[in-house]
Design a protein around this nucleic acid. Structure first.
Lengths: 342, 342
DNA sequence: TTGTACGCGTTATCAT
DNA sequence: ATGATAACGCGTACAA
């Protein structure tokens, strides 16, 4: 048997010809099967199978003026935090019978812009995005031109769109309050560039907790890294391990779990015992945090809920005339594990 | 200033009217800017900005008969292995000026089917997929109907499509040969269901190495789990830790790194020292493998290259008349770390 | 250099 | 119950 690959996909017109009916009847079989006689319908369905007919979504959405899809532009597909958020969105999309397209900007503004341009041209029903820069006017332009857009994991006050986030200042406070409770009096904040909003907020929360406890400002050290990655955590670990123990912070609060994992590894390699000589708190509570050989204390964010809430908002904006923009802020929670509980 | 949200997106026709030129001229500005006088072009571009004109991709691809996008249907977006593969694909897509849509089947055949149906209707230029079941006839049907399709991380011999994979049998052999070299004579294979091809192949490689070394068959134990997850690794750890030390395997070869990380954590919790009492080899060499507090020996696969090769094949099939289906098999490599090197 | 007319595949409306 | 036809927005050949 030879399997032929069909060269050009058949259209409703071809199906109609093959079945010996009119074009309108084929359309009825597809969209209002009840209005067509059983015998006719069968003939048409047979022809469709025979010809390998596949509906053309471009034509459909051109006609309909809207597509049946949603998109999420991720900041970093390699970070489990964002894939969990995506999963929450996926569930919502599935419920609404929409396709979800995931795009990865990989923290690059140019790639993000390209994705956004394509998505806008595709006329997706809505765009969810964790942006490289939440204040970029490009986002406003998209909303102004009519595509519902929701910012995920960042708050944009007074903007032309909804946003869903977690209270990062509070998260930072929880982390450092926990360390202070455990008796730490020299703490390092290990984070990516403060230009990243999430990082800046978590640092602010940390300093708030610190000053509220009346501790000397200088004893909360800032160890700035270039990015929120495992590699960045490792190099921070080297720097910390290099400090004489009398002056070395006894605990580190990391801006996310990737950094914390890198720090944990490097610190252990350098001979520091965790948490006896260095306690570590991460952020996000990704699955790998609990799976680390010294399970990581971390600040948990409701990741899937974040995604679902964002999707619900964008769907509401897409379909509800009376939609009102809103800023949703979830509350984080500290999960204490061995890396601080020695 | 009040920012109006435009209700309906403007078409080329609207732009033409606003600019006081004909529709064809607007089209020329878009597609052959050189054929239009500078002054006219400027007028048109001004009108476009004014009206917030966005090209309608549905109309474009309906006219063109093809879209400008590619899709990758992932088996598990939460597994870093697949996000790395996706990144390789993304680079290739970027180079070809195509959008890449990521879809996640989450190991569910129904969700996968839905995604495939949508993608086929979208007329994407090609579909890359790590399928739930590589032998599903649904895949053949898609290829037969004309959408180029490439299987990623599985080989399908004699099929109507290309496939790109890594030699999992060899990978399994490398892992177990390494353990034998290190003196282990009782080894456990910890894996998801053998119905997953990757798992079955790695197990086969393990047994091959074992019998080649002339070791008694019974001393290579199979510890079957339900899935390739951290949680599954943990429960395997409980089972191993429960075995009296005289009979307990001295090493475990895990079907992937997620399992290995779970196993590592649980074994440590149960008081087993790694690698002295239990050596561990993972598979995939995801970033977190090296970052584990006992860095994991693992079998590395060229993840990004896998994605890039698959994308190149699908693009070739989409554009090259003389395309010939091929099966590409990459070679894995063992990365030895502390979890076996005690 | 600019304008006009047609077709891409689908769907909805109207007429038969 | 079924068939004919217009419209969605764009690109392009062809005419002016």
């Amino acid at each position: 048997m030879v399997i032929e690959r069909q060269q050009l996909s058949a259209s409703v017109k071809d199906v109609a010809a093959a079945a010996g009916v009119s074009l309108g009847t084929v359309s009825n079989v597809l969209n209002r099967p009840d209005r067509v006689a059983a015998a006719t319908r069968e003939k048409v369905e047979h022809a469709m199978a025979e010809l390998g007919f596949v509906r053309n979504e471009s034509a459909r959405s051109l006609r309909a003026g809207r597509t049946r899809s949603l998109a999420y532009v991720m900041l970093d597909a390699g970070n489990p935090f964002f894939t969990d958020v995506a999963q929450g969105i996926e569930h919502a999309a599935e419920g609404a019978e929409l396709s979800l397209f995931l795009c990865n900007s990989d923290s690059r503004a140019t790639r993000e812009a390209t994705h956004l341009e394509h998505l806008e041209q595709q006329r997706v029903q809505g765009i969810l995005i964790t942006p490289v820069d939440p204040d970029s006017p490009a986002l406003d332009a998209i909303a102004r031109r009519g595509t519902p857009l929701v910012i995920v994991d960042r708050i944009r006050k007074g903007g032309a769109f909804c946003s869903v986030a977690v209270d990062d200042v509070l998260g930072g406070r929880l982390a450092v309050e926990h360390l202070i409770d455990r008796g730490h009096r020299r703490v390092a904040f290990v984070g990516g560039p403060l230009s990243i909003g999430q990082v800046a907020d978590r640092y602010e929360g940390a300093r708030l907790a610190w000053s509220t406890a009346g501790l000397p400002e200088d004893d909360l050290t800032l160890v700035a890294g270039e990015s929120l990655t495992v590699a960045s955590g490792r190099s921070a670990g080297e720097r910390l391990a290099g400090i004489p123990s009398a002056r070395r912070p006894t605990a580190a609060f990391c801006a996310n779990d990737l950094i914390a994992l890198g720090l944990l590894q490097q610190a252990t390699t350098a001979g520091l015992r965790v948490p006896e000589q260095l306690a570590i708190v991460g952020y996000d509570d990704i699955e790998f945090a609990a799976a680390a050989a010294v399970p990581l204390t971390s600040v948990r964010q409701p990741r899937q809920e974040l995604g679902r809430a964002a999707a619900d908002l964008v769907l509401d904006e897409a379909s509800n005339e009376a939609h009102h923009h809103q800023q949703v802020v979830f509350t984080p929670e500290l999960v204490a594990r061995a890396s601080t509980l020695g």
